[in-house]
Design a protein around this nucleic acid. Structure first.
Lengths: 192, 192
DNA sequence: ACCGAAACTGAAGGATCATTCATATCTATA
DNA sequence: TATAGATATGAATGATCCTTCAGTTTCGGT
C-alpha cells in the first residue's frame, strides 16, 4: 500500500537525519512515490508527522490498557512488575518508531498531544492502583503520576542518551524493581 | 554585553516557537543586534545552539558534583534525598533554559553530548554510592545508571508534558521518596 | 475495447533562511 | 585629534524546501 510505504519511509528518514533533514521530497523518494502523491494523503508535512505520532501513542495506550486489564486486582508486587514490563515491551516493540518520533516533538508543538497521552497513562495506572487489594495509598493520584513519570522518563532518557543493548538490559532488570520499591514506599505498608 | 543578549534572546526565541521557528534574524532582532554581529561570535547557528547546550550541561554537572561532595559519606537516606533534591534544584533553577534546550536535541545531533552528560552523571552517582556506609549494592553501577535515568527522565517528562506548579510540587515530594525506595531495594539491606 | 474515476507524477512557483561582505561606527591609544 | 583595530550593520546571495497543479497513468466496470 502506498500509504504504508510513506509511513515506513518517514520513519526511516527521521532515523537517518532527524526532523531537521526530513523533507517531503526525501520521504517521497525513499517511499518510491512522488511528492504529489504524499499530498493526496496528507494536506501538509505536519499532518503526516502528527499522524505517525498519534498512531504510536495509540499503540502504546492500547498496550497499557491491555496490561491493566490483565493485572486488575493483583497484589502490589505483581502490578508493579507487570506495569513496568508492559511499558518496556510496548516501547521496545516499536523502538525504531519511538526514537524517531521523539524528534518530532521539538519541531512542532506536540505538547498538547503529549500532555493528553501522559494524562491517559496516569489515569490507567491510577485505577489500577485503586484495585490493588494489599495496599492503601496516602495520595494515590500522586503515586500514579509519579509512576508514569518514572516509566516514561527513564526509557526515554536511555533511548536518547545511549540506546545500547546493555543499557536496555539494565532497564529491564532495574525498572520493575524501582517501580515496586516506589509503590511499596508510597503505600501505607502491606495489608496482607 | 552583546553576547549575553544573544544568549538570552536565543532562549526566548526557542521558548516562543521551538527550534523550528528559531532563525538567525529573529534571534538577532530580539537581541537588539544585527545578524552580522551574531556571526562574529559564532561561525554558524549550530555553534550558538551547541554553546548554549554545553553551558547548561556544565551548570548542572557542577551542581551535581557540589551536591556529591556535600553528601559524601552520608547514610543512604540522606544521599537519596540529597541527590534528588540537588537534581530538582539544578533543573528548576534554570528551567526556562532547560525546557528550551530539550528542543535543540531533535534538530541537531546532540546524542553524543547527551551521552557524555549522562555518563558523567552516572559516574558521580556511582562514586557517591560507593561511599555510603550503611549499604552494599549487588550491582552498584546498574543502580547508579538507573538512578540517573530515573532522575533525568522524570523531570524531563513532566517539563515536556505538563509543566504546572502542581506537578512540580508532586515531583519535589515524590522523587526523593522514589530514589530512596529504589536505593534501599537495590542495596542488600541496611547495615547500621 | 472503451470510459470515467482514482491515483500518481514532477517541474515550477513562491517563501523562508543561513551566511557573506562591503561599509559604517565605535574605542582606545599615541 | 588622528588613526588603527575592533565591533556592528543589513542588503544581497544562493540554497533549500513546501506546496501546487496540469497532465499522465492505472484500474474497475461495462
Amino acid at each position: 500500500m502506498t500509504i504504508e510505504a510513506i509511513h515506513v519511509a518517514t520513519i526511516q528518514v527521521l532515523l537517518a537525519g532527524g526532523v531537521g533533514r526530513l523533507t517531503t521530497t526525501r520521504v517521497a523518494a525513499r517511499a518510491g512515490v512522488s511528492v504529489g502523491t504524499m499530498y493526496q494523503y496528507y494536506p501538509h508535512k505536519q499532518a503526516l508527522l502528527f499522524a505517525l505520532v498519534q498512531r504510536q501513542f495509540d499503540l502504546i495506550d492500547t498496550a497499557m490498557r491491555d496490561a491493566a486489564a490483565r493485572l486488575a486486582g493483583s497484589d502490589l508486587g505483581t502490578v508493579a512488575h507487570g506495569v513496568a514490563t508492559a511499558w518496556l515491551d510496548a516501547k521496545m516493540a516499536d523502538m525504531v518508531a519511538s526514537r524517531a518520533i521523539y524528534g518530532i516533538a521539538a519541531e512542532f508543538d506536540l505538547s498538547e498531544m503529549m500532555s493528553r497521552a501522559a494524562q491517559r497513562m496516569t489515569q490507567v495506572i491510577d485505577t489500577l492502583l485503586a484495585n490493588v487489594p494489599d495496599a492503601r495509598f496516602a495520595d494515590r493520584s500522586s503515586a500514579a503520576f509519579m509512576l508514569a513519570a518514572l516509566l516514561g522518563g527513564s526509557v526515554r532518557v536511555v533511548m536518547e542518551a545511549e540506546p545500547s543493548e546493555e543499557n536496555f538490559a539494565r532497564l529491564r532488570c532495574e525498572l520493575p524493581r524501582a517501580c515496586h520499591a516506589y509503590l511499596v514506599a508510597a503505600s501505607q505498608g502491606a495489608l496482607a
